[in-house]
């Protein structure tokens, strides 16, 4: 969308991720290009479509054995392609941070959550412990935790899933990144809690002008939460459209996915089953909208 991509935060050109195997390279991501501006970009796809690998490749956090190549990957003025591990440390967390699916596994179980948030700040900013703790308390309040002092001193097993994910959001936002990559951030949460977490993420991202890459398998959620949607199939982007127009999507894959979703108002109606067309794998990719 032209209004929001005027000054893209992240520009990715021809990203490829592959796994070398005995029968040659298996490509999980096969040459995708996209931009994220100060908006919410949803990346949707089924398992194995390469959506998570795309998110991880940006931070160079691929599983061992995976190789990635990219023509160009610019974060603001910085070219990320070719940075070494040391230089990436200055990017990760500080300028681009990542929220993963389940807070249970991404928080340190033997450290008070407040100290984990403060640590995230101290890694990237010169600050005293007291100052960092102060910032962590402010951040907890910003993610709408009613009693920040009490929650600061809790351990991860003492907080609920929804609160855990809000703590993760606090931790990811405290170094003031330009871009957040959220990989299925609400899949482990109950529906009503999910909406609260999304509302908080929405508010913080919008008011602070942060770009958000929202990776999800949930078409309904992405079409209602994001500004723009990229649909991935077999490692490529097969369609991109404004999120509000997702229900008028043109690509047969997107249409097939939408038709296979059960809907509350349709009751017992038989669901349409997606017929995969081999040509989708290799047909030309639509240009930037």
């Amino acid at each position: 969308m032209s209004g929001t991509t005027k000054s893209p935060i992240l520009t990715v050109e021809d990203l490829r991720v592959g796994f070398p195997g005995p029968r040659g390279l298996v490509e999980a991501v096969r040459g995708i290009s996209f931009e994220v501006g100060r908006n919410k970009v949803g990346i949707v796809g089924e398992s194995g479509s390469g959506k998570s690998m795309t998110g991880r490749a940006i931070l160079n956090l691929l599983p061992s054995g995976a190789t990635s190549t990219v023509k160009s990957m610019r974060l603001g003025e910085t070219e990320l392609a070719g940075l070494n591990e040391n230089e990436m440390l200055g990017i990760r967390g500080k300028r681009v941070s990542m929220i993963l699916q389940d807070p249970k596994y991404s928080l340190n179980p033997v450290m008070r959550v407040g100290h984990q948030i403060a640590e995230a700040f101290r890694v990237h900013h010169r600050a005293s412990r007291a100052e960092a703790n102060e910032r962590a308390l402010e951040m907890l309040a910003a993610v709408r935790i009613r009693d920040p002092k009490r929650v600061f001193a809790l351990y991860p097993h003492e907080v609920s899933g929804g609160m855990g994910q809000r703590i993760m959001i606090a931790m990811m936002l405290i170094p003031e990144p330009e871009l957040i990559i959220a990989d299925e951030p609400t899949s482990a949460l109950d529906v009503t809690v999910r909406l609260q977490v999304l509302a908080i993420l929405d508010e913080l991202v919008t008011t602070r002008g942060i770009g958000l890459m929202f990776i999800s398998h949930d078409l309904n959620l992405v079409s209602t939460f994001c500004d723009e949607v990229l649909i991935m199939y077999a490692g490529r982007i097969v369609e991109r459209c404004p999120a509000a127009d997702l229900h008028q999507a043109k690509h047969p894959y997107t249409r097939g996915l939408l038709a296979s979703l059960p809907r509350l108002e349709d009751g017992h109606k038989r669901l349409r089953v997606l017929e995969r067309d081999p040509s989708w794998r290799n047909e030309p990719i639509p240009a930037e909208a």
């Binding site: 089924e46 296979s260 059960p262 997606l274």
Partner: peptide, 9 residues
């Protein structure tokens, strides 16, 4: 996945 879910349902 949703497309597989449809088949199973």
């Amino acid at each position: 996945d949703v497309s597989v879910q449809a088949e199973v349902l």
